[in-house]
């Protein structure tokens, strides 16, 4: 079982530390327990991992208070630009990144559930890159910010109406250690 943890952990580390155009190693996870062989009825013992209530360790308390505690930017339908009301939020995070060059951030773009999942990945990417661009303009460095997309896959609201969709058209900013 330990080998699995190491593999997962290592893959995670590799993902976190990848530089702009460098690909994380094409590692092969050797999980001898799993097979897709027909007619296998034995089940692998599954180690129960409790990830509820995990505290964020080594976090700067500053990012948990005031405007830095605000982490979400919402969008109108088919919109990708940052609305005026969210500009102070982005400015505050840009300032923090500029003043703390060792800190890193992940910007996750999200969309509502309508349309193709893959196309929504691209639309969410457009949102997160808009946030990253503004952060860089305001003093953050390229190597501090990664913009990615979760498309429609991680809705904050599970509903199927405009109220839910407006919650899901969103960019979230997370500091390293929070994701």
């Amino acid at each position: 079982m330990r080998a699995i943890w190491i593999a997962v952990f290592t893959a995670g580390l590799a993902a976190c530390s990848s530089s702009p155009t460098e690909q994380a190693p094409a590692g092969v996870e050797d999980r001898t327990s799993g097979t897709a062989k027909p007619d296998t009825t034995s089940t692998t013992p599954i180690a129960k991992v409790d990830v509820t209530g995990t505290g964020i360790t080594g976090q700067d308390p500053a990012v948990k208070t005031g405007v830095l505690a605000q982490r979400s930017i919402f969008y109108d339908l088919d919109q990708y630009d940052i609305k005026d009301q969210y500009k102070p939020l982005v400015e505050a995070h840009a300032r923090y990144l500029r003043d703390n060059p060792g800190r890193k951030m992940l910007v996750q773009g999200n969309t509502d559930e309508r349309g193709s999942r893959e196309y929504n990945i691209s639309l969410g990417q457009k949102r997160s890159e808009g946030v990253k661009k503004m952060l860089l303009l305001l003093g953050a460095r390229e190597d501090q910010v990664e913009s990615v997309s979760l498309g429609e896959e991680k809705p904050r609201s599970e509903g199927h109406d405009e109220t839910a969709w407006s919650q899901n058209r969103r960019s979230d900013v997370l500091y390293q250690g929070e994701y």
Binding site: A11, S18, S19, A24, A26
Partner: peptide, 19 residues
């Protein structure tokens, strides 16, 4: 790989990798 469950990373660049 379905027979042995081995996985390779085909694309894990900075940003999103999909489709």
């Amino acid at each position: 790989s379905l027979a042995d469950g081995k996985r390779q990373v085909a694309a894990n660049f900075k940003g999103s990798n999909s489709a």
